[in-house]
Amino acid sequence: MEKMRFAVLMCAEDSEYVKQVYGGYSGVFVKMLAEEGETWDVYKVARGEFPEDDDLVLYDGFVITGSCSDAHGNDKWVRDLLDLLNKLHSMNKKLLGICFGHQILGRALGGKVTRSPTGWDIGVRTVTFSPSWAFSLSSLDLPPGLSIIKCHRDEIRELPEKAEVIAWSEKTGIEMFKCGDHVMGIQGHPEYSKDILLHLIDRLIRGNFITDGDGIQARERAALDPDKEAWKRMCVNFLKGRL
Rank of each mutant, 00 (worst) to 15 (best):
84 L>C: 03
43 Y>K: 11
33 L>P: 03
46 A>L: 07
31 K>Y: 04
60 D>P: 01
58 L>W: 05
77 W>Q: 05
39 T>V: 10
91 M>Y: 01
51 P>N: 11
90 S>M: 12
42 V>M: 07
59 Y>M: 14
43 Y>E: 10
91 M>D: 02
78 V>T: 14
58 L>V: 09
73 G>E: 10
91 M>F: 06
40 W>F: 07
59 Y>G: 12
73 G>F: 09
26 S>E: 12
49 E>A: 07
13 E>C: 01
84 L>E: 11
25 Y>N: 07
56 L>I: 12
15 S>K: 05
79 R>A: 10
97 G>T: 11
28 V>P: 02
43 Y>W: 08
35 E>W: 00
43 Y>L: 06
51 P>S: 12
38 E>L: 01
17 Y>P: 04
23 G>A: 08
41 D>E: 15
82 L>H: 07
50 F>G: 12
28 V>I: 15
81 L>A: 02
15 S>F: 02
88 L>E: 06
90 S>F: 01
35 E>Y: 00
47 R>M: 08
14 D>Y: 03
74 N>Y: 02
84 L>I: 07
39 T>W: 00
89 H>K: 15
64 I>P: 05
17 Y>M: 03
58 L>E: 13
53 D>G: 13
23 G>W: 04
53 D>Y: 07
13 E>Y: 05
98 I>C: 04
23 G>H: 02
17 Y>L: 07
39 T>I: 14
87 K>C: 04
15 S>R: 03
34 A>Q: 11
23 G>T: 09
19 K>L: 14
63 V>Y: 07
14 D>R: 09
36 E>D: 12
52 E>G: 14
47 R>I: 00
50 F>A: 11
57 V>T: 13
38 E>I: 05
82 L>E: 15
56 L>G: 14
64 I>M: 11
72 H>E: 07
94 K>N: 01
89 H>S: 13
37 G>A: 04
32 M>Y: 01
96 L>A: 09
38 E>A: 02
20 Q>D: 14
39 T>F: 02
46 A>I: 15
62 F>P: 03
34 A>E: 09
44 K>P: 06
27 G>D: 03
45 V>L: 01
52 E>P: 02
23 G>S: 09
53 D>V: 10
64 I>S: 05
90 S>E: 13
54 D>L: 06
53 D>M: 10
83 D>I: 13
64 I>A: 08
32 M>D: 03
